[in-house]
């Protein structure tokens, strides 16, 4: 796999207040995004997600550190030709109609007239806005702006797409459609950099994640590696055995129609429980290890700070 985004030791501080004081936002961000993956960039509000993204896209300049896109400096036009970007809140030219809006961005990429019109029609259809092509953006709802924002991010058929909170402001169907589009992008061989503080979004679609808290990346890796390393407890569903038999071995979480749901934290207690069930002619219906979810990991890391 080749690296499409390489961020090395990124630092950024902003000066704020009447008596100017430097506030460090990024404190040495280092990350790599490989070709063809969906990379989740996760962090609480104010952690520095959008600041990192702005540095990568050349909207702001880092104080220190290096950013390379496809092996090129991030501010080079050649690198920018291969990327797409959907900002956090859809900020667009509200006096333009949807089609004019996409045409404007297509022209910045120097697309030919024929390719441009074909692409615009295709994208309007993809994001479900073909009927709104002649409506000015000022009349768009938040969800519609998010959709047209995605369309502009894809106008150049980018190899790497940056999405900042792409599911914000969408209804459940819109969220599902957006997730499907993100997964389709991966199928087409594109790389997606997804910024979000909504764990569910990241967990459902991302291959690898980096967790940023207070301007530092605290954990980075494949989603399965990060969350499946820790087995928190086991859930065992048994029947035809009284709950009192498992005293001291596990906690009975529920009892329904002769079935017991046991929560067992110590692995060595599982054998003991199985013995008891077999001796009493009971049945084991399921044994499920409950691994740590991304949420658990996230909460753990944030609290640690």
């Amino acid at each position: 796999m080749s690296t499409v985004l390489d961020v090395n030791n990124l630092h950024k501080a902003f000066t704020t207040g009447f008596i100017p004081q430097k506030k460090k936002i990024l404190k040495g961000i280092t990350l790599k995004v490989e070709k063809g993956e969906i990379f989740g960039y996760l962090g609480p509000n104010g952690a520095g997600k959008t600041t990192t993204l702005k540095c990568i896209l050349g909207i702001i300049f880092p104080d220190e550190g290096e950013i390379r896109l496809f092996g090129l400096p991030n501010t080079s036009l050649q690198a920018k030709e291969k990327i797409g970007f959907l900002p956090e809140n859809p900020y667009f030219y509200e006096y333009l109609t949807a089609a004019e809006f996409l045409r404007f961005y297509a022209q910045l990429f120097g697309l030919s007239r024929e390719t441009k019109e074909k692409k615009i029609n295709h994208l309007l259809q993809l994001v479900g806005l073909e009927r709104a092509s002649t409506v000015q953006l000022r009349k768009f709802s938040r969800g519609m702006l998010q959709r047209i924002g995605l369309a502009q991010a894809l106008i150049n058929d980018p190899l790497l797409v940056f999405l900042d909170e792409p599911l914000g402001g969408l209804d459940p169907i819109g969220r599902k459609e957006m997730r499907d589009i993100i997964l389709r992008l991966r199928e087409e061989g594109k790389t997606v950099f997804l910024c979000s503080h909504i764990l569910q979004d990241i967990e459902m679609v991302c291959d690898r994640v980096a967790i940023i808290v207070d301007g530092k990346i605290l954990n980075q890796g494949k989603l399965q590696d990060l969350v499946s390393e820790k087995i928190l407890f086991y859930e065992i569903v048994v029947s035809d055995v009284p709950a009192s038999s498992f005293k001291g071995l596990g906690e009975c979480l529920a009892e329904d129609g002769g079935r017991l749901l046991l929560k067992v934290t110590a692995e060595e207690n599982i054998k003991e429980i199985m013995k008891i069930v077999l001796n009493q002619n009971g049945r084991i219906h399921s044994l499920t290890p409950r691994t740590a979810t991304l949420e658990d990991l996230f909460v753990h890391l944030v609290r640690q700070r």
Binding site: K54, L57, G58, I59, L77, Q78, K80, E81, I83, F85, P87, N89, Y91, F92, Y93, Y105, L108, F109, G149, Q152, F162
Partner: peptide
Amino acid sequence: DKKTIFTVIAKPIH
């Protein structure tokens, strides 16, 4: 102010 510049700067334009 309206942050419309974000998407334009991210495109291949000086």
